[in-house]
Write a protein that binds this DNA or RNA. Sequence first.
DNA 1: TGCCAGGCCGGGT
DNA 2: ACCCGGCATGGC
Length: 208
Amino acid sequence: MGYYDKLLKAFGPQHWWPGDGPFEVLVGAVLTQNTNWGNVEKAINNLKAAGKLTPQALHEISPKELAPLIRPAGYFNIKAKRLKSLINWLFERYHGNLDDMFSQNLGTLREELLSVKGIGPETADSILLYAGNMPSFVVDAYTYRVLSRHHLIPEDSTYEEIKAFFEDNLPKDAALYNEYHALLVRVGKTYCKPREPACGACPLGEFL
DNA sequence: TGCCAGGCCGGGT
DNA sequence: ACCCGGCATGGC
């Protein structure tokens, strides 16, 4: 039995980002950068209540008008710009149409997303996987912490190396990548906390 | 109360 | 090619 099966059995499905459709997930991917998800939900709700949670509305809104709506998500000025740059790109490249965007080849689309200012590897992969249902494994601070603490990867591993660690050893299955990443976050939240040098007392060894 | 949360950019070495 | 400061709110 692999790690994934053990984690799934121990914690159950995490139901990550069922969301209200791919566009909401895409917006959430930017808003959640280095930010607690609870705060992101408040910002999403503000956008919904203002009728601004559509590609067209966000394309037309100014950063000045957008920033206060997403205030609870933190870094609201910079995130307003990042959201705008992503939406501008979406319209220029794919006519504001998510179906067109996700019809693109995965590798090409990932490179295109990374070229947008404010979209780094984790945000790009989150959009590909959780909004587009494309098999691109997401790496985040939890993933790194859990794996490095249990010596499954070197301390100095890069994002792309950790991503490859999973993708080279798993079938290219979006549903699997989705659930696996969510389970690793769950483990990280529950046991593998920051500023705790080792995992001697945590039951993770049993699963990993 | 300080630390943390589903990062990324830009400027300096 | 790395390293670091800045960006900011809300919950425990």
